[in-house]
Nucleic acid binder design. Structure first.
Lengths: 237, 237
DNA sequence: ATTAGGCTCGCTATTTATGGGGAGGCCATA
DNA sequence: TATGGCCTCCCCATAAATAGCGAGCCTAAT
């Protein structure tokens, strides 16, 4: 690891406030001499946490236009495990092209490298480096610091989680074994009757499990319960 | 990063077979001069993938006794983001104590350090170092190689995912904007009527979107469609 | 320019889910 | 031993989802 990134890692571990977190993104940007460094996450209920060097105009624009739903970076990272170079993504759709052009207009660089990070309870965060450069220049930079970035990204996420520690009070509900089986079968598309047959219990009993799981998950209906259980990582279908 | 770990990283990237993956765990164990190195995951359908240096007797015992359900390492890691030193975990329950004693009898060391790794579709993997040592010796080793381990763990996971790459052929269906909005609202727990009101369309129209999305997703019912959309990463709730 | 796909609405009928209520036994932990 | 959580079953009434039919308009791509 380069000495300056090593120092940066020490620094970020001492960060105590959101302002410190924000200026850490700026420090890293300056250290790497690139256009932008951004960390953000979207949690299950659509609440956001983020810091970075994008202009507030671009952030507002992004939210206003609901770009979250068409941003290839989000989609690409959501389906992968490995960091992704923006050039590798699918920018072929019209919406993606419009989005990219708009981003450039708002001062976002043409090159990007994003590391997806996943945490407990379905947390999903993105750590992005962005710059204006040729493919060659960018690839050279990335391949040089690739590995260090994984560690840096994780340090950012660790800090972010520490700030949201209040959230950890929302402990993931503990479902009983039967509740888990029941909701898993429902999530797989079985009807109540089928799921009950599968578990060898009466449909009424199954209903009790689903209802109870639903209450524990704070869900409005069965479909919502399945959605919450999935995005909280309580069940895996 | 120490030079030998650096070399090890180069090596693991050249691994092509499961046997190579397995011997990589052995190489790392020898390199660090510790008792065990283990990588394993449980995927979406409950299939397992794993490699490591635990004795097959212990692995069989673990599965037979269903220790997965009472292992504090699993529980602890599932709810955290950061790597965990086994000493920090809650071993107070009777089941946990029995489990720990049993593990020692099967040649598992008393010290452990486990890194949780999460991937797309709820993938959850664990990368573990294990050894017999005093707390001081162990803490010294861990704090020395802590950061490198994050990178190593991610390289292991990358390889493991590459072996399972067949799965990535499942092309994700493309939902239209309205279908996406509709199913997202349903996933948030709204009833059809509420979701329709939210989108400003008739309930019937909304129904058509849900049905159409359901067919594209190959789902048996609405709940199943939401589950599939979520785990395919088509929608984010 | 034709086609394919998306968006919008309506109707009817059947099946399924939901939201309450109550009740007994079993096991572990406090 | 008492409490709380889990597992199992039953009843009833209403609300909601499913499955099939048909039809029109608009936009984008071949």
């Amino acid at each position: 690891m380069t000495a300056d990134l090593q120092d940066f890692l020490e620094d970020i571990q001492r960060v105590e406030t959101f302002e410190g977190f924000q200026s850490a993104t700026e420090d890293l940007r300056d250290l790497l001499a690139i256009s932008h460094v951004v960390y953000h996450w979207v949690n299950s209920v659509g609440e956001r946490f983020g810091a970075g060097t994008y202009s507030s105009e671009w952030v507002d624009r992004y939210l206003e236009k609901d770009y979250l739903r068409m941003d290839p970076v989000i989609f690409g990272c959501f389906q992968r495990f490995t960091p992704v170079n923006w050039k590798q993504l699918d920018w072929s759709s019209k919406a993606a092209k419009t989005f990219f052009r708009d981003a450039l207009d708002y001062g976002v660089g043409n090159q990007g490298y994003t590391i997806p990070i996943r945490g407990p309870n379905g947390q999903f965060a993105l750590f992005t480096l962005n710059h204006t450069a040729t493919d060659e220049e960018w690839d050279r930079l990335i391949s040089r610091i690739q590995r260090d970035l994984v560690v840096v990204a994780h340090e950012f996420n660790k800090k972010a989680l520490a700030f949201e520690a209040v959230d950890e009070n929302q402990t993931t509900p503990t479902l009983s074994p039967r509740e888990l089986s029941a909701i898993t079968h429902i999530a797989k598309g079985l009807s109540r009757a089928q799921a009950a047959a599968e578990l060898g219990i009466s449909e009424h009993t199954l209903r009790v499990y689903i209802e109870s799981a639903r209450h524990k998950l704070g869900a409005l209906n069965t479909t919502h319960a399945v959605a919450r259980a999935l995005s909280m990582g309580v069940i895996i279908v």
